[in-house]
Computed example of a mutant assay.
Amino acid sequence: LQTSQEARTRVFERLDVATSELNIELDRLEKQKATAARARKRVLELKAEIEEKIASQQGEIAELNEKIQRAEARQRRRDAAAAAQPSTPLPNPGHIPTVHASSPHAQKAVDAALSQIGKPYVYAAAGPDSYDCSGLTMWAWAQAGVGLPHNSGAQYAATPRVDRSDLEPGDLVFFGSPIHHVGMYIGDGQMVEAPYTGEYVRVVSMDRSDYVGAGRPGL
């Protein structure tokens, strides 16, 4: 009888231990479940934040594209009006400066740009009879074997930055925010540019309040 009681006691003791271990495991699982729930909630919150930012950026991009389209439409109307006017002789380019660049490629680009002085500005034109601003710089550097996109902002993105104090003939100088104009530096604070409808390729000072920066093609 005593042996039977001892056996039952041992069984109950093992049962108590097993129950205690089970309770500990259940408590651990509950904590893991709570942690997982918090993590899932945070993931959903982050997902919502990201989706909100994407929607906001898409709206800003759409607004910017709309502004660009309106500006391009205005420019096309101005160009169409200018084209409807009776043709006039090209202006006398006058004195074309002699420029010495620091590299053969830059020299070819500068000489090419200067050779177009007096030709008319036409929106989206890239030579050889007329140019817009980025069309002139693209065409001039193409004569030196260097490809550039036909857009002033894209040319800024495609060229390494150059400090204003380190400008050399052939460097591109950019203006506006967002960038909407580009010219080619030729030294002594001067640039050659295709300015706007009704004007012609010319040499002018690059000293403008909307100067943004400069880039050097071909590096």
Rank of each mutant, 00 (worst) to 15 (best):
G127A: 05
Q107C: 06
L44Q: 11
I50H: 13
A7R: 13
Q107A: 04
D166W: 07
M206C: 03
P160S: 01
H181C: 05
A154S: 13
P195M: 04
W141L: 05
S165H: 11
A214N: 12
P160K: 09
P149R: 00
P97F: 10
V182Q: 08
S103M: 03
N92P: 02
N151G: 15
E49A: 10
Q116K: 14
N65P: 07
A214L: 10
L44W: 10
F12I: 09
I61K: 14
R38G: 02
A71M: 14
A142Y: 15
R164A: 11
V204W: 01
R70D: 13
V99I: 10
S177F: 09
V204N: 15
A124P: 11
F175N: 11
A144T: 02
R216T: 08
E25N: 09
R28F: 02
Q57E: 05
W139G: 14
V11L: 11
R77H: 10
T159W: 05
A82Q: 10
A80H: 14
R161I: 00
Y200G: 06
D163S: 11
V110I: 09
H181M: 04
A62K: 15
R70A: 14
L136Y: 01
V162N: 04
L167V: 03
D111Y: 06
D132R: 02
T137Q: 13
Q32I: 02
D171M: 12
I68M: 10
N23R: 14
V17T: 08
A81E: 14
Q143T: 06
S56G: 02
D166Q: 09
A140H: 13
A39I: 02
E199R: 11
G59K: 14
G218N: 07
T88R: 15
P120A: 09
K31N: 04
A126F: 00
A71N: 13
A126I: 00
S102I: 04
Q155G: 05
W141G: 00
A106D: 02
V162T: 08
S4G: 01
G183H: 03
L172D: 13
V182I: 03
A154M: 07
S152P: 07
C133S: 10
F174P: 00
E72R: 07
L114G: 05
T9Y: 15
R161T: 04
M184D: 03
Q155C: 04
N65R: 15
R70K: 11
L219D: 12
I24R: 12
Y185V: 03
G145Q: 08
R10D: 01
I24D: 03
G170R: 00
W141M: 04
T88Q: 15
E66L: 07
P217W: 00
Y211N: 09
A109W: 04
Y121W: 09
A124R: 15
P86N: 08
D171L: 13
E199G: 11
A71L: 14
I24E: 06
R8K: 10
L1M: 12
P149Y: 01
R161E: 08
P120Q: 03
P195N: 06
A48N: 13
H150W: 04
A124M: 13
L64A: 09
C133R: 01
L29M: 11
G135Q: 01
A109N: 05
L64K: 08
